[in-house]
Amino acid sequence: MRHDRKDLPEIADEYVLGLLEPSAQAEVEAAMERDAALRAAVAASRERFLPLDTAVEPAAVDEGLWGRIEAALPTAPAIPAGRSVSAGSSPSSNDNRPRAWRATALSALAASLLLAVGLAWSLTRTVEPLVIAVLLNETGEAQAVVEDFGNDTAKVRLLNEFAVPADKTIQVWTLPSREMGPVSLGLVRGSQSAVLQAPALPRPRRDQLYELTLEQAGGSPTGRPTGPILAKGFARRPL
C-alpha cells in the first residue's frame, strides 16, 4: 500500500474500526510487524476507542465455554527445537506423525495471521500464486511461506534464519496426493529465499501439504524426505 506517513493515524483508525478492505487489512497487519510508527498509531487508536468496549454490559458466560477452550489448547507450548519428530520409531521415519504436530495444527490461528503476511507479499506480484502455505515448526512458529504458481514454479520465502551446516541443504517438498507420495520442489541455497523450478505436478489444491527438511548437500539421495522436518504447513487459496 502506497501511503504518506502523515496518513498513518488515519489508516490506523480505519484499520481499528474494521473499515479497510480485506486486502488492505492484511497489508496493514503485515506492515505493522516491521513498522514501529504504524504499530504505535494502531495502539493509540485502539486505546482511543477501547472505552466503548470496556463500558459494555458483560454477557452471562456459558458454563461449558472454558472447558471447550481448555480442551482445544495445544499441549506443552515449547517443544525443544531439533527433537526428532519420530522419536521412538525407526530413525529414518518421516511420516508426519500426528502427535508431534498436533501443537502445530492447533496453531492455525497463528498461521492465519502469518498468512496475511504472505498475502500482502503476494499482492505486490503480477502473477498470482494458486496456493500459499505458511510453514510452521513444531512449536507453531512460522518459518517460511511457499507460493505455488502451479506452472511448475514455486517460491519459498524463509521467515527465519536456519543454521544450515556446510554439508546440508534445505529441501522443499509437497505431497500432491497420498498415491504420489512426497515430491521434491527443489533445494534452497544456503538460507536464502528461492524460486524453484519444480517438476510437472497436479494443480496444487487447498490443504496440500508443503514442508522443508534438512537433507544432505545436493538433496535427498532417495528422492524422498529423509532428514528432520524443519517446518510444514497446509496450502490455502489466496482470495
Partner: peptide, 20 residues
C-alpha cells in the same frame, strides 16, 4: 482465547494496553 494463548509471547506494551 486460543489465539491469545498462542500469540501471548508477541504482546509488548508498545502494542498498547494488554486489555486493548
Amino acid at each position: 482465547f486460543l489465539r491469545i494463548w498462542t500469540s501471548a509471547h508477541q504482546y509488548t506494551p508498545e502494542r498498547g494496553s494488554a486489555r486493548g
